[in-house]
Design a protein around this nucleic acid. Structure first.
Length: 422
RNA sequence: GUGGGAGUAGCUCAGUCGGUAGAGCACCAGAUUGUGGUUCUGGGUGUCGCGGGUUCGAUCCCCGUCUCUCACCCCA
Protein backbone atom coordinates (compact mmCIF):
# COMPACT_ATOMS: atom_id res chain seq x y z
CA UNK A 1 0.00 0.00 0.00
CA UNK A 2 3.00 2.19 0.28
CA UNK A 3 4.16 4.22 -2.63
CA UNK A 4 3.42 1.76 -5.39
CA UNK A 5 2.60 2.81 -8.91
CA UNK A 6 -0.83 1.90 -10.21
CA UNK A 7 -2.20 1.62 -13.71
CA UNK A 8 -3.61 4.80 -15.19
CA UNK A 9 -7.23 5.51 -14.29
CA UNK A 10 -9.64 3.67 -16.55
CA UNK A 11 -6.92 1.49 -18.02
CA UNK A 12 -7.00 -2.13 -16.95
CA UNK A 13 -4.80 -5.19 -17.07
CA UNK A 14 -6.13 -8.47 -18.38
CA UNK A 15 -4.60 -11.42 -16.54
CA UNK A 16 -4.84 -15.16 -16.85
CA UNK A 17 -7.14 -16.95 -16.64
CA UNK A 18 -9.42 -14.14 -17.82
CA UNK A 19 -7.21 -13.51 -20.83
CA UNK A 20 -8.28 -16.93 -22.09
CA UNK A 21 -11.79 -15.54 -22.59
CA UNK A 22 -10.30 -12.72 -24.65
CA UNK A 23 -8.41 -15.23 -26.73
CA UNK A 24 -11.59 -17.20 -27.30
CA UNK A 25 -13.41 -14.11 -28.50
CA UNK A 26 -10.54 -13.07 -30.75
CA UNK A 27 -10.12 -16.54 -32.20
CA UNK A 28 -13.84 -16.73 -32.94
CA UNK A 29 -13.73 -13.39 -34.74
CA UNK A 30 -10.59 -14.26 -36.67
CA UNK A 31 -12.10 -17.48 -37.96
CA UNK A 32 -15.45 -15.87 -38.78
CA UNK A 33 -13.94 -12.88 -40.57
CA UNK A 34 -11.73 -15.17 -42.62
CA UNK A 35 -14.81 -16.97 -43.89
CA UNK A 36 -16.22 -13.62 -44.98
CA UNK A 37 -13.02 -12.67 -46.78
CA UNK A 38 -11.60 -10.07 -44.41
CA UNK A 39 -7.86 -9.55 -44.04
CA UNK A 40 -6.33 -8.12 -40.88
CA UNK A 41 -4.94 -4.60 -40.81
CA UNK A 42 -2.75 -3.27 -38.00
CA UNK A 43 -2.13 0.43 -37.69
CA UNK A 44 -0.27 2.59 -35.17
CA UNK A 45 -1.99 3.67 -31.99
CA UNK A 46 -0.81 7.23 -32.62
CA UNK A 47 -2.08 9.28 -35.53
CA UNK A 48 -1.94 12.94 -36.44
CA UNK A 49 -4.57 14.83 -34.51
CA UNK A 50 -5.87 16.33 -37.74
CA UNK A 51 -6.94 12.89 -38.97
CA UNK A 52 -9.54 12.57 -36.23
CA UNK A 53 -10.57 16.21 -36.30
CA UNK A 54 -11.30 15.94 -40.02
CA UNK A 55 -12.51 12.35 -40.04
CA UNK A 56 -14.70 12.07 -36.97
CA UNK A 57 -15.82 15.69 -36.91
CA UNK A 58 -14.73 18.78 -34.98
CA UNK A 59 -18.04 19.13 -33.20
CA UNK A 60 -18.30 15.57 -31.89
CA UNK A 61 -17.84 14.84 -28.20
CA UNK A 62 -14.96 12.55 -29.02
CA UNK A 63 -12.95 15.25 -30.73
CA UNK A 64 -14.07 18.07 -28.48
CA UNK A 65 -13.26 16.57 -25.12
CA UNK A 66 -12.34 12.89 -25.17
CA UNK A 67 -9.08 12.60 -27.05
CA UNK A 68 -5.66 11.88 -25.60
CA UNK A 69 -3.76 14.52 -27.52
CA UNK A 70 -0.22 15.74 -26.93
CA UNK A 71 2.76 17.16 -28.72
CA UNK A 72 5.80 15.03 -29.48
CA UNK A 73 9.37 16.28 -29.30
CA UNK A 74 9.01 17.69 -32.79
CA UNK A 75 5.99 19.78 -31.76
CA UNK A 76 3.65 17.63 -33.88
CA UNK A 77 0.17 17.21 -32.43
CA UNK A 78 -0.51 13.50 -32.03
CA UNK A 79 -3.56 11.68 -30.75
CA UNK A 80 -4.03 8.18 -29.39
CA UNK A 81 -6.70 6.71 -31.63
CA UNK A 82 -10.22 6.91 -30.17
CA UNK A 83 -11.48 4.57 -32.90
CA UNK A 84 -10.10 2.84 -35.97
CA UNK A 85 -12.22 3.87 -38.92
CA UNK A 86 -10.29 7.06 -39.49
CA UNK A 87 -6.95 5.27 -39.27
CA UNK A 88 -8.07 2.58 -41.71
CA UNK A 89 -9.28 5.22 -44.12
CA UNK A 90 -5.93 6.97 -43.84
CA UNK A 91 -4.12 3.72 -44.59
CA UNK A 92 -6.44 2.94 -47.50
CA UNK A 93 -5.64 6.28 -49.08
CA UNK A 94 -1.95 6.26 -48.16
CA UNK A 95 -1.37 2.88 -49.80
CA UNK A 96 -3.47 3.72 -52.86
CA UNK A 97 -5.64 0.67 -52.31
CA UNK A 98 -8.35 2.23 -54.43
CA UNK A 99 -6.22 1.77 -57.53
CA UNK A 100 -5.16 -1.77 -56.67
CA UNK A 101 -8.38 -3.65 -56.08
CA UNK A 102 -12.08 -2.90 -56.55
CA UNK A 103 -13.21 -4.26 -53.18
CA UNK A 104 -11.26 -4.26 -49.92
CA UNK A 105 -12.25 -6.00 -46.72
CA UNK A 106 -10.26 -5.31 -43.57
CA UNK A 107 -10.71 -6.29 -39.96
CA UNK A 108 -8.78 -5.05 -36.95
CA UNK A 109 -8.42 -5.59 -33.23
CA UNK A 110 -6.73 -3.28 -30.79
CA UNK A 111 -6.91 -0.81 -27.93
CA UNK A 112 -8.62 2.57 -28.33
CA UNK A 113 -8.39 5.55 -26.00
CA UNK A 114 -10.99 8.04 -24.87
CA UNK A 115 -10.75 10.43 -21.95
CA UNK A 116 -14.09 9.70 -20.28
CA UNK A 117 -15.17 8.81 -16.77
CA UNK A 118 -14.92 5.06 -16.45
CA UNK A 119 -17.83 2.88 -15.45
CA UNK A 120 -19.02 -0.64 -16.13
CA UNK A 121 -18.48 -1.38 -19.80
CA UNK A 122 -16.69 1.89 -20.48
CA UNK A 123 -13.01 2.47 -19.99
CA UNK A 124 -10.39 4.98 -21.04
CA UNK A 125 -8.37 2.25 -22.67
CA UNK A 126 -10.70 -0.24 -24.29
CA UNK A 127 -10.55 -2.74 -27.10
CA UNK A 128 -12.47 -2.75 -30.29
CA UNK A 129 -12.72 -5.33 -33.01
CA UNK A 130 -14.11 -4.07 -36.27
CA UNK A 131 -14.49 -4.53 -40.00
CA UNK A 132 -14.34 -2.10 -42.89
CA UNK A 133 -15.42 -2.75 -46.47
CA UNK A 134 -14.44 -0.36 -49.24
CA UNK A 135 -15.74 -0.23 -52.78
CA UNK A 136 -19.27 -1.58 -52.45
CA UNK A 137 -22.18 0.82 -52.75
CA UNK A 138 -24.90 -1.82 -52.90
CA UNK A 139 -27.10 -2.47 -49.86
CA UNK A 140 -26.52 -6.20 -49.69
CA UNK A 141 -23.11 -5.66 -48.10
CA UNK A 142 -24.71 -3.62 -45.29
CA UNK A 143 -26.97 -6.54 -44.48
CA UNK A 144 -24.16 -9.06 -44.86
CA UNK A 145 -22.14 -7.33 -42.14
CA UNK A 146 -25.10 -7.15 -39.78
CA UNK A 147 -25.90 -10.81 -40.33
CA UNK A 148 -22.26 -11.74 -39.76
CA UNK A 149 -22.45 -10.02 -36.37
CA UNK A 150 -25.60 -11.81 -35.30
CA UNK A 151 -23.85 -15.06 -36.16
CA UNK A 152 -20.82 -13.96 -34.15
CA UNK A 153 -22.75 -13.19 -30.98
CA UNK A 154 -24.84 -16.28 -31.30
CA UNK A 155 -21.77 -18.49 -31.56
CA UNK A 156 -20.25 -16.69 -28.57
CA UNK A 157 -23.35 -17.34 -26.52
CA UNK A 158 -24.35 -13.69 -26.15
CA UNK A 159 -28.11 -13.64 -25.84
CA UNK A 160 -31.01 -11.17 -25.79
CA UNK A 161 -29.91 -9.43 -28.96
CA UNK A 162 -31.76 -6.58 -30.63
CA UNK A 163 -30.72 -5.24 -34.02
CA UNK A 164 -31.61 -1.58 -34.57
CA UNK A 165 -31.22 0.02 -37.97
CA UNK A 166 -31.84 3.43 -39.47
CA UNK A 167 -30.64 5.61 -42.26
CA UNK A 168 -29.23 9.07 -41.66
CA UNK A 169 -29.47 10.04 -45.30
CA UNK A 170 -26.94 10.69 -48.00
CA UNK A 171 -24.75 13.74 -48.33
CA UNK A 172 -27.40 15.20 -50.65
CA UNK A 173 -30.33 14.51 -48.30
CA UNK A 174 -28.89 15.86 -45.13
CA UNK A 175 -28.59 19.60 -45.75
CA UNK A 176 -32.29 19.85 -46.59
CA UNK A 177 -33.30 17.88 -43.53
CA UNK A 178 -30.93 19.77 -41.35
CA UNK A 179 -32.46 23.06 -42.47
CA UNK A 180 -35.97 21.76 -41.81
CA UNK A 181 -35.00 20.53 -38.35
CA UNK A 182 -33.33 23.77 -37.39
CA UNK A 183 -36.36 25.72 -38.59
CA UNK A 184 -38.55 23.55 -36.38
CA UNK A 185 -36.37 23.73 -33.29
CA UNK A 186 -35.31 27.35 -33.34
CA UNK A 187 -38.59 28.72 -31.99
CA UNK A 188 -38.34 26.23 -29.12
CA UNK A 189 -34.75 27.05 -28.33
CA UNK A 190 -35.47 28.18 -24.77
CA UNK A 191 -36.73 24.73 -23.85
CA UNK A 192 -33.53 23.03 -24.90
CA UNK A 193 -30.70 22.10 -22.57
CA UNK A 194 -27.37 23.87 -22.83
CA UNK A 195 -25.79 21.10 -24.85
CA UNK A 196 -28.67 21.08 -27.29
CA UNK A 197 -28.60 24.85 -27.78
CA UNK A 198 -25.04 24.34 -28.91
CA UNK A 199 -25.92 21.28 -30.99
CA UNK A 200 -28.56 23.29 -32.79
CA UNK A 201 -25.69 25.09 -34.44
CA UNK A 202 -23.00 22.43 -34.56
CA UNK A 203 -24.93 19.22 -35.15
CA UNK A 204 -28.72 19.56 -34.92
CA UNK A 205 -29.37 15.87 -35.59
CA UNK A 206 -27.93 15.06 -32.20
CA UNK A 207 -30.74 16.96 -30.50
CA UNK A 208 -33.02 14.09 -31.55
CA UNK A 209 -30.94 11.81 -29.42
CA UNK A 210 -30.91 13.91 -26.24
CA UNK A 211 -32.19 12.27 -23.05
CA UNK A 212 -33.14 15.48 -21.23
CA UNK A 213 -36.95 15.44 -20.76
CA UNK A 214 -37.51 19.01 -21.94
CA UNK A 215 -35.51 18.28 -25.07
CA UNK A 216 -37.50 15.14 -25.68
CA UNK A 217 -40.67 17.24 -25.47
CA UNK A 218 -39.29 19.86 -27.80
CA UNK A 219 -38.34 17.21 -30.31
CA UNK A 220 -41.83 15.72 -30.36
CA UNK A 221 -43.43 16.32 -33.71
CA UNK A 222 -40.15 17.30 -35.34
CA UNK A 223 -39.84 16.66 -39.03
CA UNK A 224 -38.73 13.10 -39.66
CA UNK A 225 -35.60 12.42 -41.55
CA UNK A 226 -37.35 9.71 -43.49
CA UNK A 227 -39.56 12.34 -45.10
CA UNK A 228 -36.50 14.09 -46.47
CA UNK A 229 -34.77 11.10 -47.97
CA UNK A 230 -33.99 11.07 -51.65
CA UNK A 231 -35.08 8.25 -53.88
CA UNK A 232 -31.66 6.63 -53.90
CA UNK A 233 -31.45 6.58 -50.13
CA UNK A 234 -34.91 5.10 -49.82
CA UNK A 235 -34.10 2.40 -52.33
CA UNK A 236 -30.85 1.62 -50.58
CA UNK A 237 -32.45 1.32 -47.16
CA UNK A 238 -35.21 -0.83 -48.59
CA UNK A 239 -32.52 -3.04 -50.08
CA UNK A 240 -30.85 -3.42 -46.72
CA UNK A 241 -34.11 -4.42 -45.09
CA UNK A 242 -35.00 -6.80 -47.88
CA UNK A 243 -31.63 -8.53 -47.64
CA UNK A 244 -31.82 -8.77 -43.86
CA UNK A 245 -35.19 -10.43 -44.26
CA UNK A 246 -33.75 -12.88 -46.75
CA UNK A 247 -31.00 -13.67 -44.24
CA UNK A 248 -33.50 -14.23 -41.48
CA UNK A 249 -32.22 -11.31 -39.38
CA UNK A 250 -34.89 -9.49 -37.45
CA UNK A 251 -34.11 -5.79 -37.37
CA UNK A 252 -36.08 -2.95 -35.81
CA UNK A 253 -36.10 0.43 -37.53
CA UNK A 254 -35.32 3.12 -34.96
CA UNK A 255 -35.88 6.65 -36.22
CA UNK A 256 -33.91 8.12 -33.35
CA UNK A 257 -30.81 6.07 -33.97
CA UNK A 258 -28.22 8.73 -34.72
CA UNK A 259 -24.58 7.83 -34.46
CA UNK A 260 -22.32 10.25 -32.65
CA UNK A 261 -19.70 10.38 -35.34
CA UNK A 262 -20.04 12.75 -38.26
CA UNK A 263 -18.84 10.47 -41.01
CA UNK A 264 -21.88 8.24 -41.17
CA UNK A 265 -24.08 8.42 -44.25
CA UNK A 266 -27.02 6.24 -45.10
CA UNK A 267 -27.33 3.01 -43.17
CA UNK A 268 -26.51 3.04 -39.46
CA UNK A 269 -27.07 0.18 -37.07
CA UNK A 270 -26.54 -0.90 -33.51
CA UNK A 271 -26.88 -4.23 -31.78
CA UNK A 272 -27.80 -4.29 -28.11
CA UNK A 273 -27.80 -7.09 -25.60
CA UNK A 274 -29.81 -7.27 -22.42
CA UNK A 275 -27.71 -10.18 -21.20
CA UNK A 276 -25.05 -10.19 -18.55
CA UNK A 277 -23.50 -7.53 -16.40
CA UNK A 278 -23.28 -4.70 -18.87
CA UNK A 279 -24.33 -2.11 -16.32
CA UNK A 280 -25.92 0.94 -17.84
CA UNK A 281 -24.61 0.19 -21.31
CA UNK A 282 -26.44 -1.98 -23.77
CA UNK A 283 -24.77 -1.31 -27.11
CA UNK A 284 -22.27 -4.02 -27.92
CA UNK A 285 -21.57 -3.10 -31.52
CA UNK A 286 -22.40 -0.21 -33.80
CA UNK A 287 -21.57 0.81 -37.30
CA UNK A 288 -22.81 2.08 -40.58
CA UNK A 289 -22.03 3.39 -43.99
CA UNK A 290 -19.59 6.25 -44.53
CA UNK A 291 -19.57 6.89 -48.23
CA UNK A 292 -18.09 10.38 -47.91
CA UNK A 293 -15.20 9.81 -45.53
CA UNK A 294 -12.51 8.69 -47.95
CA UNK A 295 -13.11 11.66 -50.23
CA UNK A 296 -13.18 14.10 -47.32
CA UNK A 297 -9.77 12.83 -46.26
CA UNK A 298 -8.37 13.44 -49.71
CA UNK A 299 -8.94 10.04 -51.27
CA UNK A 300 -10.98 8.95 -54.25
CA UNK A 301 -14.74 8.87 -53.72
CA UNK A 302 -15.22 5.39 -52.26
CA UNK A 303 -18.32 3.83 -50.76
CA UNK A 304 -17.58 2.18 -47.43
CA UNK A 305 -19.31 0.31 -44.64
CA UNK A 306 -17.99 -0.74 -41.25
CA UNK A 307 -18.60 -1.44 -37.60
CA UNK A 308 -16.77 -1.66 -34.30
CA UNK A 309 -17.61 -3.92 -31.42
CA UNK A 310 -16.55 -3.32 -27.84
CA UNK A 311 -14.49 -6.26 -26.64
CA UNK A 312 -14.99 -5.61 -22.92
CA UNK A 313 -18.72 -5.25 -23.47
CA UNK A 314 -18.92 -8.45 -25.49
CA UNK A 315 -17.04 -10.22 -22.72
CA UNK A 316 -19.32 -8.79 -20.06
CA UNK A 317 -22.33 -10.44 -21.61
CA UNK A 318 -20.60 -13.51 -23.00
CA UNK A 319 -20.47 -15.29 -19.66
CA UNK A 320 -18.57 -18.55 -19.42
CA UNK A 321 -16.06 -19.69 -16.86
CA UNK A 322 -12.62 -18.36 -17.69
CA UNK A 323 -10.99 -21.56 -16.47
CA UNK A 324 -12.92 -23.51 -19.09
CA UNK A 325 -11.02 -21.68 -21.83
CA UNK A 326 -7.60 -22.38 -20.35
CA UNK A 327 -5.65 -25.22 -21.91
CA UNK A 328 -5.29 -27.96 -19.30
CA UNK A 329 -1.94 -29.51 -18.42
CA UNK A 330 -1.46 -32.97 -19.94
CA UNK A 331 1.32 -34.11 -17.63
CA UNK A 332 2.47 -32.74 -14.29
CA UNK A 333 5.88 -34.02 -13.22
CA UNK A 334 6.48 -34.11 -9.48
CA UNK A 335 10.11 -33.99 -8.40
CA UNK A 336 12.36 -34.66 -5.43
CA UNK A 337 15.81 -33.16 -5.32
CA UNK A 338 17.94 -31.46 -7.90
CA UNK A 339 18.89 -34.57 -9.92
CA UNK A 340 15.20 -35.26 -10.28
CA UNK A 341 14.46 -31.71 -11.37
CA UNK A 342 17.15 -31.76 -14.03
CA UNK A 343 15.86 -35.04 -15.42
CA UNK A 344 12.23 -33.83 -15.21
CA UNK A 345 13.04 -30.61 -17.01
CA UNK A 346 14.65 -32.55 -19.83
CA UNK A 347 11.74 -34.98 -20.03
CA UNK A 348 9.23 -32.12 -20.08
CA UNK A 349 11.18 -30.44 -22.85
CA UNK A 350 10.92 -33.57 -24.96
CA UNK A 351 7.22 -34.10 -24.20
CA UNK A 352 6.43 -30.51 -25.10
CA UNK A 353 8.19 -30.96 -28.41
CA UNK A 354 5.88 -33.91 -28.91
CA UNK A 355 2.94 -31.53 -28.47
CA UNK A 356 1.92 -32.01 -24.85
CA UNK A 357 1.34 -29.33 -22.25
CA UNK A 358 3.67 -30.18 -19.40
CA UNK A 359 4.40 -28.61 -16.02
CA UNK A 360 7.40 -29.47 -13.88
CA UNK A 361 7.55 -28.74 -10.16
CA UNK A 362 10.80 -26.79 -10.05
CA UNK A 363 10.47 -25.88 -6.39
CA UNK A 364 11.64 -28.06 -3.56
CA UNK A 365 8.17 -28.93 -2.34
CA UNK A 366 6.58 -31.87 -0.56
CA UNK A 367 4.92 -34.62 -2.59
CA UNK A 368 1.47 -33.92 -1.19
CA UNK A 369 1.79 -30.29 -2.07
CA UNK A 370 2.88 -31.18 -5.57
CA UNK A 371 -0.13 -33.38 -6.21
CA UNK A 372 -2.38 -30.66 -4.90
CA UNK A 373 -0.83 -28.32 -7.35
CA UNK A 374 -1.37 -30.84 -10.14
CA UNK A 375 -5.05 -30.75 -9.21
CA UNK A 376 -5.18 -26.99 -9.12
CA UNK A 377 -3.66 -26.90 -12.60
CA UNK A 378 -6.26 -29.41 -13.78
CA UNK A 379 -3.50 -31.73 -14.90
CA UNK A 380 -4.78 -34.83 -16.64
CA UNK A 381 -1.81 -36.95 -15.60
CA UNK A 382 0.90 -36.83 -13.01
CA UNK A 383 4.27 -38.52 -12.98
CA UNK A 384 6.38 -38.69 -9.85
CA UNK A 385 10.06 -38.61 -10.67
CA UNK A 386 12.06 -39.38 -7.52
CA UNK A 387 15.19 -41.30 -6.61
CA UNK A 388 13.65 -44.70 -7.30
CA UNK A 389 12.54 -43.68 -10.77
CA UNK A 390 15.89 -42.11 -11.56
CA UNK A 391 17.61 -45.32 -10.52
CA UNK A 392 15.31 -47.72 -12.36
CA UNK A 393 14.57 -45.58 -15.40
CA UNK A 394 10.89 -46.45 -15.06
CA UNK A 395 7.96 -44.50 -13.62
CA UNK A 396 4.22 -44.56 -13.24
CA UNK A 397 2.01 -42.18 -15.20
CA UNK A 398 -1.07 -41.55 -13.12
CA UNK A 399 -4.44 -40.59 -14.53
CA UNK A 400 -5.62 -37.91 -12.11
CA UNK A 401 -9.30 -38.58 -12.71
CA UNK A 402 -9.33 -42.38 -12.44
CA UNK A 403 -6.19 -42.71 -10.28
CA UNK A 404 -5.09 -45.53 -12.57
CA UNK A 405 -1.36 -45.80 -13.13
CA UNK A 406 0.52 -47.19 -16.10
CA UNK A 407 4.19 -48.12 -16.24
CA UNK A 408 6.32 -46.01 -18.57
CA UNK A 409 10.03 -45.85 -19.42
CA UNK A 410 11.58 -42.42 -18.84
CA UNK A 411 13.55 -42.60 -22.08
CA UNK A 412 10.49 -43.58 -24.10
CA UNK A 413 9.11 -40.12 -24.85
CA UNK A 414 6.78 -41.37 -27.58
CA UNK A 415 5.41 -44.00 -25.22
CA UNK A 416 4.75 -41.47 -22.45
CA UNK A 417 3.13 -39.09 -24.92
CA UNK A 418 0.90 -41.87 -26.24
CA UNK A 419 -0.10 -42.91 -22.73
CA UNK A 420 -0.85 -39.29 -21.81
CA UNK A 421 -3.07 -38.89 -24.83
CA UNK A 422 -4.98 -42.12 -24.27
C1' G B 1 -17.38 17.95 -16.32
C1' U B 2 -21.59 16.46 -12.35
C1' G B 3 -23.59 13.22 -8.51
C1' G B 4 -23.95 8.63 -5.21
C1' G B 5 -21.12 4.42 -2.71
C1' A B 6 -16.59 2.36 -0.83
C1' G B 7 -11.37 2.13 1.04
C1' U B 8 -9.43 -3.11 7.53
C1' A B 9 -4.79 -9.83 6.18
C1' G B 10 -3.06 -12.21 -0.81
C1' C B 11 -8.92 -12.36 -1.86
C1' U B 12 -14.20 -11.53 0.12
C1' C B 13 -15.64 -9.04 4.31
C1' A B 14 -16.95 -8.54 9.80
C1' G B 15 -15.78 -5.38 13.98
C1' U B 16 -14.63 -1.78 17.88
C1' C B 17 -21.65 2.97 21.04
C1' G B 18 -13.23 5.84 20.86
C1' G B 19 -9.01 1.66 24.85
C1' U B 20 -3.98 0.05 18.53
C1' A B 21 -8.43 -6.06 15.18
C1' G B 22 -11.19 -10.90 13.61
C1' A B 23 -13.70 -14.74 10.24
C1' G B 24 -14.05 -17.45 5.77
C1' C B 25 -11.31 -18.59 1.48
C1' A B 26 -6.41 -19.20 -0.24
C1' C B 27 -1.44 -20.66 1.17
C1' C B 28 2.32 -23.79 4.16
C1' A B 29 3.51 -27.92 7.65
C1' G B 30 2.04 -32.32 10.16
C1' A B 31 -1.45 -36.67 11.01
C1' U B 32 0.01 -40.16 5.92
C1' U B 33 9.44 -41.32 6.46
C1' G B 34 7.23 -40.14 -1.74
C1' U B 35 1.11 -39.43 -4.18
C1' G B 36 -4.16 -35.22 -4.98
C1' G B 37 -9.69 -32.71 -4.79
C1' U B 38 -12.65 -35.08 1.86
C1' U B 39 -11.17 -34.75 7.27
C1' C B 40 -8.37 -33.19 11.70
C1' U B 41 -4.31 -30.23 14.09
C1' G B 42 -0.93 -26.20 13.94
C1' G B 43 0.82 -21.57 11.34
C1' G B 44 -1.16 -14.14 10.47
C1' U B 45 2.12 -7.38 13.39
C1' G B 46 -1.99 -6.02 8.96
C1' U B 47 1.54 1.66 8.32
C1' C B 48 -7.43 -0.59 9.61
C1' G B 49 -5.89 4.52 1.99
C1' C B 50 -3.02 9.20 3.27
C1' G B 51 -2.73 14.03 6.08
C1' G B 52 -4.58 17.05 9.86
C1' G B 53 -8.14 18.07 14.06
C1' U B 54 -10.85 16.75 18.76
C1' U B 55 -9.26 13.47 22.89
C1' C B 56 -5.42 10.98 28.25
C1' G B 57 -5.99 7.76 23.91
C1' A B 58 -8.57 7.56 17.01
C1' U B 59 -9.12 2.03 12.71
C1' C B 60 -13.81 4.11 14.90
C1' C B 61 -15.83 11.06 15.64
C1' C B 62 -14.75 15.80 12.51
C1' C B 63 -12.20 18.20 8.22
C1' G B 64 -9.27 17.70 3.99
C1' U B 65 -7.10 14.68 0.34
C1' C B 66 -6.10 10.49 -2.81
C1' U B 67 -7.78 6.06 -4.96
C1' C B 68 -11.39 2.64 -6.53
C1' U B 69 -16.39 1.97 -7.96
C1' C B 70 -21.43 2.97 -9.86
C1' A B 71 -24.40 6.41 -12.43
C1' C B 72 -25.41 11.07 -15.52
C1' C B 73 -23.48 13.09 -20.23
C1' C B 74 -21.65 10.62 -24.36
C1' C B 75 -20.13 6.34 -26.54
C1' A B 76 -18.11 0.41 -28.47
Amino acid sequence: MADTIQSVKGMNDVLPPDSARWQHLEATCRELFARYGYGEIRTPVLESTALFARGIGEATDIVEKEMYTFKDRGERSLTMRPEMTAGCARAYIEHSIHGKEPVTRWWYCGPMFRYERAQTGRYRSFWQIGCEVYGIAEPTIDAEQIAMLTELYTSLGVGDLTVLINTVGSAEDRPAYRAALVAFLEPKQDALCGDCKRRLVTNPLRVLDCKVPTCKDAVAGAPALRDHLGERTRAHFAGVQRTLEALGVEAKVDDNLVRGLDYYTGTVFEITSAAGALGAQSTIVAGGRYDGLLESLGGQPTPAMGFALGVERALLCMGGDAAAFVRPIDVFIATRGEDSRVRATALAHALRKAGLAVEVEHRDAGMKNQFRRADALRARHALALGEAELASGGAKLKDMATRQEVEVRLDDVAGIAAAARA
